[in-house]
């Protein structure tokens, strides 16, 4: 293919150069499984170094929305852009869905942390972190291992480098998964209910790592049921209900001043659960 200065390329360059440009822009995104609309006309902007939490009842579409951002889930209408680059589709009209191979360039800059950790069970913690450094960043094995060790130290697991995932607690596994992502130096991190599969006493260690990342200026989109984390760490909170963003704004505003009845009801269940 001949290298030409396409409009897309120049847009990207401008966007990358501009620090005030948003990290993620979501415009009119919709998705349906048959007649079941899981996302309806979603608009959302995430600025650089911002932490946005997505909250809402189960089935509200928050995880689906998050998974659309790195195109693990296909959205039907609207557009999602990361640093100006369209996610999942070509810039042509009519647009063409991109293959996994074509999405690699985008995905290497967008890290994702899953509810079920999704570590590779046949690799040690160190190997889990080093794998993508070799395959995607092109580091040699020694450099990758060195960097992986550094990352494990950052999440407080330097001494677990040679353990297989089955030998680690859930909290430790999730921290390895985070190390695996930050080793890639992503511009944006997506968290899909990162503490939901954990025993209550292990939630804190994972949230602490996430707090540290936020403090360092990482741009994060977090689907969570941890309202305390959303209230204290998020810059803005989006409440999703039946595929729509029903409330959006700074945490104080969403948690205390929103007139939305569904949100009040949703928060009520949390208050009840936590008061005993």
């Amino acid at each position: 293919m001949a290298v030409t200065d396409t409009p897309t390329a120049s847009v990207q360059r401008v966007a990358a150069a501009d620090d005030t440009a948003p990290m993620v822009t979501i415009r009119g995104v919709s998705k349906a499984y048959g007649s079941n609309e899981v996302l309806r006309d979603i608009d959302l902007t995430v600025n650089k170094s911002e932490v946005v939490c997505l909250i809402g009842p189960s089935g509200s579409g928050k995880s689906t929305l998050l998974r659309c951002i790195n195109f693990l889930e296909v959205y039907d209408r609207g557009e999602i852009r990361i640093e100006g680059q369209l996610v999942g589709y070509s810039e042509t009209t009519p647009r063409r869905r991109l293959s996994n191979a074509e999405l690699r360039g985008l995905r290497r800059n967008v890290g994702m942390v899953f509810q079920q950790f999704n570590l590779w069970p046949h690799m040690t913690a160190l190997e889990n972190v080093a794998e993508a450094l070799v395959q995607v960043r092109g580091l040699d094995k020694i450099a990758a291992a060195e960097r992986a060790r550094l990352m494990l130290a950052r999440v407080g697991l330097a001494d677990k480098a040679d353990s297989y995932p089955s030998r680690l607690s859930g909290g430790q596994q999730q921290r390895v998964a985070i190390a695996r992502v930050i080793a890639m130096e992503p511009h944006l991190m997506l968290f899909d209910e990162p503490t939901s599969a954990l025993d209550p006493e292990l939630v804190g260690e994972v949230l602490q790592v996430m707090r540290d990342l936020a403090a360092e200026g990482m741009t994060m989109v977090v689907v969570t049921h941890e309202m305390g984390f959303a209230a204290n760490v998020a810059d803005r909170v989006a409440f999703l209900d039946r595929g729509r963003i029903a409330a959006f704004g700074p945490p104080r505003q969403v948690f205390h001043e929103s007139p939305e009845p569904r949100l009040t009801q949703f928060l009520q269940t949390y208050h009840e659960r936590n008061s005993f």
Binding site: N70, L72, N100, A101, L103, R104, G105, L106, R107, R108, N109, V110, G111, M112, F114, Q116, N118, L119, W120, P121, E131, A132, Q135, V136, A177, R180, V181, M184, L190
Partner: peptide, 17 residues
């Protein structure tokens, strides 16, 4: 498990890898 493949995809790993 699908999640193990998704984790690899989300890191930008090539299909062969």
């Amino acid at each position: 498990p699908k999640g193990q493949v998704e984790a690899a995809l989300s890191l930008g790993m090539p299909y062969g890898g």
